[in-house]
């Protein structure tokens, strides 16, 4: 987890994280583990009655994956804020590709910080989640 933050530069990419395609088991496990029991994510019959072709991934499952991307680049104790916008639904079979880069070095509450642009797309390059994270560098 030790990383030399002295030389972090704007433009530096985060190591990409590629995950296996979303399947029903992942959604069932995440429903139980997160406490999000909304049936749109775990009950196909319910999802179809609601007009969806099938169940789809919880937004917060994607955000948790983006969180892994960030905390593998910087230790979690350095994380100051983490915000995302859910841009599009992540469907079964979508293989998440997590990526990010440093977009700004800034001073925040007396700390030198990096602002990271982070995102989750699928294997076809379709954007699903767009966000940013502020990480303390000192």
């Amino acid at each position: 987890m030790t990383k030399d933050f002295k030389n972090v530069q704007v433009g530096e990419p985060l190591p990409e994280l590629r995950l296996p395609p979303v399947d029903r088991t992942m959604l069932a496990l995440f429903a139980g583990a997160s406490g999000d029991h909304v049936p749109l994510h775990i009950d196909t019959d319910f999802a179809r009655r609601a007009g969806m072709p099938d169940v789809f991934a919880h937004g917060m499952l994607g955000m948790a994956w983006v969180g892994r991307l960030v905390t593998q680049w910087a230790p979690q104790r350095a994380l100051r804020s983490f915000t995302v916008r859910f841009v599009a639904i992540t469907h079964l079979g979508n293989a998440p590709v997590l990526s990010g880069k440093v977009v700004e070095i800034l001073e925040r509450n007396g700390e030198r910080c990096a602002r990271l642009d982070v995102q989750m797309a699928n294997q076809f390059g379709q954007l699903k989640i767009q966000g940013d994270a502020i990480v303390a560098l000192d």
């Binding site: 937004g59 917060m60 955000m63 104790r77 100051r80 804020s81 983490f82 915000t83 995302v84 859910f86």
Partner: peptide, 17 residues
């Protein structure tokens, strides 16, 4: 109605572990 909602945005500020 639960069927009409989507998660739009989510943010966290961290102050202590």
């Amino acid at each position: 109605n639960m069927n009409n909602i989507l998660h739009g945005e989510q943010g966290f500020e961290y102050h202590a572990p």
